[in-house]
Write a protein that binds this DNA or RNA. Structure first.
Lengths: 260, 260
DNA sequence: TTTTTGCCGATTGTAGACAATCTGATCGCT
DNA sequence: AGCGATCAGATTGTCTACAATCGGCAAAAA
């Protein structure tokens, strides 16, 4: 009896990776890195040639990306990288806030000493990035920090959906280039989060996470509006940020003109 | 200039629905209705013949279903309807609870009179089903009730993910056949939810929703355990129900033997 | 000049063919 | 009889070919 069923890495690789998987991963990478920008058209023949595969696997990968919300397939017209409209970004932030509140609660209840030490280290690193004024590095650490927190909450479904949302959100305008002129605020909020978790108070930790995400929402949305990005339809700016998740009258759902 | 661009229904249909879409919808229907039970193998050639299409569109539909979590594609072995293990069902309930708490909050803040009247009507209908001891009808009304609440919260992303979770959850063992021996409890909780929403107190409404989902989790899990469904690995039953979303030690993630 | 109509290239939708892989059954050996 | 190797059938992975649709350009009409 094998103590552990650990197939050779190469075996594992061949068993799991079909062309569809590889193409899917590669396309996702290209999209998330901005190499394929929102709105870009993905022509089957061109991409197939570039990746060295036929159209079949490529189309299957497209379907995966479509369900993941990264591309939009328009019948007989082509596949396009999605452009996330502001309203949707706001919705994602609100949803994330609720999810992260759950994360904070669970962590306050269950986190171990070693794990606490680990995330403290991440906050330290972020504060160092702030001192160095290294916005890019800070951005990466920030992503990693939140991802790790969600992961530590121990709900894999939650993790899965959280990551899906983050991916979609990265398609929101030029969010990636977020200039770090508010890094100190964000960093100090992180410190507060860890402190609340360490205290073991679920309510406090949940609230700290929730508030942080909502603040992050405000910062991101305002930053994007300020960039002079012509708004879809000249919406009431402040109200957008205030209460995103509110009831709508029946017929103003599919009004945005961006590819959604 | 056309006052309203209202394409003929048939036109609209042809523009949006490709074989992939139709097949996807049909397969989803068959899976959710139980016509294709969890664990069932979906053979490409057979299904293609049955549906009258070639393998191409069918495979693309498979990819959509895979990303939606309804089937599992095993390379070189086939496509199988997923079987949701208990642990995952628990995770989904916990996640749903957090989302529904958000729903309750938003509804307490924003619901209109007409909408309140609408959901009151649904609760009335459910209480009638309880009196008639009509478990099936109650089940449908219950689904509709919660779906409508989420919809009314006005966050389309939230709605989308909620529905995805519900679909996956319907694959959990024989959840559909939930005998209604606890309908009265569930029904009275619904009444409380509506009451809390009507009061306009976000905290109360959020808590009512959260508690209801968690109670529903307990009822469902216990009901399924009781059914003599041999447990995957003889887990600590009570602890499963208690705190699902907790931290796990490193290597007990992919341990279930069901197709996941 | 402006608008409309018909055509053509380009691209996507679908189908079918071929190659690779897996499953399980039969045969042979110990 | 038990165990393992080999082979055949079935099924999936990938590619190529054909049909349908779209978008734009040019020519003709107003």
């Amino acid at each position: 009896m094998n103590a552990e069923i650990v197939p050779h890495p190469t075996i594992e690789l061949l068993q799991t990776s079909s062309l569809v998987n590889v193409v899917h991963g590669e396309l996702e990478r290209m999209i998330l890195s901005g190499q394929l920008a929102p709105g870009a058209k993905l022509t089957e023949l061109t991409l197939a040639a570039k990746l060295g595969v036929s159209r079949g696997p490529l189309r299957e990968a497209f379907r995966l990306l479509e369900e993941a919300g990264l591309v939009k397939i328009a019948k007989n017209r082509g596949v396009f990288v999605r452009d996330i409209p502001v309203e949707e970004a706001v919705e994602i932030f609100d949803l994330r806030a609720a999810m992260d509140e759950l994360v904070g609660r669970r962590l306050a209840e269950n986190i171990s000493g070693a794990q606490l030490k680990e995330i403290r280290g991440m906050v330290d690193a972020m504060e160092k990035a702030v001192k160095d004024n290294d916005a890019y590095h800070y951005h990466l650490l920030n992503l990693k920090f939140h991802d790790r927190l969600v992961e530590l909450a121990g709900n894999s479904k939650l993790t899965e959906i959280y990551r899906k949302l983050i991916k979609e959100l990265s398609l929101f305008r030029r969010l990636n280039l977020e200039d770090g002129w508010l890094m100190p605020v964000s960093a100090s909020e992180h410190r507060s989060i860890v402190k609340a978790i360490a205290t073991g108070d679920p309510d406090a930790a949940g609230k700290a996470m929730f508030d942080h995400v909502m603040d992050s929402k405000t910062r991101t949305i305002e930053h994007n509006l300020r960039r002079g990005t012509a708004l879809p339809d000249a919406l009431p700016v402040a109200s957008l940020i205030r209460s995103s998740t509110n009831t709508r009258t029946k017929s103003d759902a599919g009004k945005s003109k961006t590819i959604a």
